[in-house]
Design a protein around this nucleic acid. Structure first.
Lengths: 224, 224
DNA sequence: TGTCTAAGTGTATAATGGACACATGAAGGA
DNA sequence: TCCTTCATGTGTCCATTATACACTTAGACA
């Protein structure tokens, strides 16, 4: 910002946003990928994303790109990191600001937007070969997600409005790849005061029905 | 990245890096600012920074901008966050990737580079009115620094090669704005095994001389 | 030799984290 | 009706970690 020159005189890079949309399904942590419809990396899987428009903020660009793929807005969305190595895109200089988004699987449907061939969730443990540096980006986001599980209530982004404590515990276990003690987990979670019990689970389960809980507040906060 | 169009057809924003260089001096946490030499915000103080060149990575751009101001390379440098609201720069769309850098005060000299009028450290508690959204950027970086003090040995970036435990403790106290118990602090710091004693302090101090310590390894790591 | 000043050191108590096992409630079939 | 099945739901003990707290020591200087 200290140049003596008009900003427009500089050669400018392209700027994109790429979004990691995580969900938990079938006992696996999954991330949304789209199949590319053009070179480079045509027919490769890649993160959903696209160019930032001149009159939208970065957060707005991420939300827009995400909603073009999923049809849902206002998911939990946080900026992750900006990747800008000169050769990460073979066409030209492209700097990408990456975002992490979270959703409960049940809460939306994939929408086939015109400009990709296909959109699909992949288990983070079984990713295909990806376009650009997207494998590295996912690795970074996964690390961030795991860290934040430990000191925030970010997990609320992955759960529906009401859930049992066992379901909540499973989400932690799947993402962190650990077994957690049921009693200790409940003590800790309930001691935060962030979740609250409602009525019981009803539908045909052949055993004692679990209490349903929900988050008092849908805001992500630091819990310790 | 999923567009059907050539990237070059899009109107492109300008991209800069801005660097927060923190140091501790005179019992205060300070940040380096430069006085702008041109519109907009001519004569306002701002963070050092500048345009990203087409063939350098973001980390390289930050390191270059920093060394243009300070004459020192290879300080501790980490990417913070990317700010890109459409109106943050009145000239045109400018997206800035911000970095945090740390230095021990003694280890370098300000170099007057040609394109700013003046460069000076300001206490983070007494900042002047700043150009652009730089006040917000500093607030963000300060938060990150405080958080990272708690779970990493990032403090090593603010200390010279050898230091006493009292000096180390003072740095924590200044940044966190808390009093820390001397015995508990020493127990905790030494239990990490990351710092090691050397010889004694010599020069004319009229009381018991303190042991000098240094970090075994200059890498920043997570300590808990 | 006494004074000054910061360095250096240990223990007791409170809080937190982790390990661990059995009774309960609803469904469904005999 | 009662017996089986299965996930739910609950408490205590122990280990580790965090916090509060005060006096002696080493060197400089007069």
């Amino acid at each position: 910002m200290k140049d003596k020159y008009d900003a427009t005189k500089y050669e400018r890079p392209s700027v994109t946003v790429d979004v990691l949309l995580f969900t938990v399904e079938d006992n696996e942590l999954k991330v949304l990928l789209v199949k590319r419809d053009e070179a480079p990396f045509e027919d490769s899987w890649a993160l959903p994303g696209g160019f930032v428009k001149m009159n939208e903020s970065l957060d707005e660009a991420a939300d827009r790109e995400l909603s073009e793929e999923t049809g849902v807005r206002n998911l939990y969305l946080e900026q992750l990191y900006t990747f800008g190595n000169p050769n990460r895109d073979p066409r030209t200089r492209v700097i990408t600001i990456t975002y992490m988004a979270l959703t409960a699987k049940s809460e939306w449907k994939l929408k086939s937007s015109g400009d990709v061939k296909e959109a699909k969730f992949f288990s983070v443990g079984k990713l295909p070969k990806l376009a650009f540096d997207h494998t590295e980006i996912i690795k970074y986001g996964l690390q961030r997600l795991r860290n934040k599980l430990g000191y925030t209530n970010i997990v609320l982004g992955l759960l529906p409005g009401s859930f049992t404590l066992t379901e909540l515990q499973r989400v932690y276990e799947i993402i962190l790849k650990t077994k957690i003690d049921k009693r200790n987990f409940r003590k800790k979670i309930l001691s935060t005061g962030l979740i609250v019990a409602s009525g019981k689970k009803l539908e045909g389960i052949a055993h004692r029905p679990a209490m349903l809980y929900s988050f008092k507040n849908k805001k992500v906060v630091i819990t310790d």
